[in-house]
Design a binder for these strands. Sequence first.
DNA 1: CAAGTGACTTTCG
DNA 2: CCGAAAGCCACTT
Length: 124
Amino acid sequence: MTKQESTGTDSRKLTPAERIWHTVGFIPKGSVASYGKIADLAGLPGRARYVGYCLRNVPASLTLPWHRVLRSNGQIAFPAGTPQALTQCELLADEQVLVQNNRVNLKLYGWEPGLDVLLHQLAF
DNA sequence: CAAGTGACTTTCG
DNA sequence: CCGAAAGCCACTT
């Protein structure tokens, strides 16, 4: 059958910002990903800063797991002690993600998307 | 259109 | 391991 109508998500119509939001939304509970990884999975390599920009501009109507996005070294993007960092730490703790000194062990919690996700949600 | 800014990343010391 | 500097990209002024 001709694949004129795409199954599920039609990435072609989505703006880069929407792709980023969708990608972040696919991070499973209990896992985390870096800004660069999100940009890469969203099909926007080298735009890690743009991911941060989009998360800051995310509509209030969207409930996005922004707390699962960390820096490349596993550190929280906000300085320790700030309300944002504390909130993110709490949200991660609720998902059984261990946070020590404003930092997360990416080796343990780093998200590695399976083929199902790559082919169904992030298929470019 | 040039300069400044930022929820980033990598390299160097 | 940690801090500083440079590189990078999209947006704002």
